[in-house]
């Protein structure tokens, strides 16, 4: 478990910074809710007239009288993008940096199999992404408690499980890609997150492209879809994880046999 401990130690600081930053956004969003609730009639009225923009963010299906609708939209946006970016950046560099920063020779000249290194790094990635989500969820819960807001406990749990799974799917995908790379470049990871995000906006605008829902994990973190389905969108989640998992296994297989560039 030496590599796991090492990765947790190296990644913990960054995870904490991201968690605090995203929690600040959560607190700001929660603090603004009383104002939004006071003007919910007007917001609903405006949303109906937003046209394409409202459609893009799936706003016309949202009822701003509902706390969870507001919370899901705000928290889903910054946690979806922010958490997704953390997962992508962390996943993208975790394996590739050994070669990119020339530490592979030190690590792999120790008696440890590449498989064990990959598994320990992968566990560390899953733990870091989960800790980030847990941290932000706990801060949100505390904020909601202070606000004295009532909310659907089930919808809250489904939503946060979906967000966590979305972050994990991005992490799995980027970890798989990282196995193929020799340089710890985070740009492709960030590109993937943005591509997923905008693909979801595109699906919202053009319902004919709903088949693309399986390509973007942002689809299953939409609060209106979760509440309508009365639970996480397991089919989308399953297909998303199956495709990311396939890339992960391919990456594992490749890394076990590849020539390390020193």
């Amino acid at each position: 478990m030496t590599i796991l401990r090492h990765e947790m130690k190296s990644g913990f600081g960054a995870m904490l910074i991201w968690s605090v930053a995203l929690s600040i956004f959560a607190i700001i969003a929660l603090a603004m809710y009383p104002l939004v609730a006071n003007y919910s009639d007007m917001i609903n009225f405006l949303v109906e007239r937003m046209g394409l923009m409202g459609q893009m963010f799936n706003l016309q299906n949202m009822n701003f009288y509902e706390f969870m609708t507001y919370y899901g939209l705000e928290y889903g946006n910054f946690m979806g993008l922010g958490g997704g970016m953390f997962a992508a950046v962390t996943g993208m560099v975790m394996v590739a940096r050994e070669e990119g920063r020339h530490t592979a020779e030190y690590l792999f000249s120790q008696p440890i199999s590449r498989g064990s290194v990959l598994i320990q790094k992968f566990i560390a990635l899953i733990l870091l992404v989960t800790l980030l989500n847990v941290f932000c969820t706990v801060v949100s819960l505390i904020g909601i408690g202070i606000l004295g807001q009532t909310f659907s406990r089930d919808a809250f749990i489904w939503f946060h499980i979906s967000l966590l799974l979305m972050n994990l799917q991005v992490a799995v995908l980027c970890f798989g890609i990282s196995c193929f790379k020799k340089r710890d470049n985070v740009v492709p990871g960030l590109g993937i997150v943005l591509a997923f995000y905008f693909l979801n906006l595109f699906i919202n605008v053009n319902r004919q492209t709903a088949v693309l829902e399986y390509l973007t994990p942002y689809y299953y973190t939409d609060i209106t879809r979760i509440t309508a389905a009365k639970g996480p969108l397991w089919r989308s989640i399953g297909i998303g994880f199956a495709s990311s998992g396939a890339l992960l296994f391919a990456g594992f297989g490749y890394y076990l046999r590849k020539d390390l560039s020193i």
């Binding site: 920063r101 020339h102 530490t103 020779e105 020193i262």
Partner: peptide
């Protein structure tokens, strides 16, 4: 085995 490489990098 004990290995001393010609050049080595460690973790930051």
């Amino acid at each position: 085995v004990g290995y001393i490489p010609s050049e080595i990098s460690y973790y930051p």
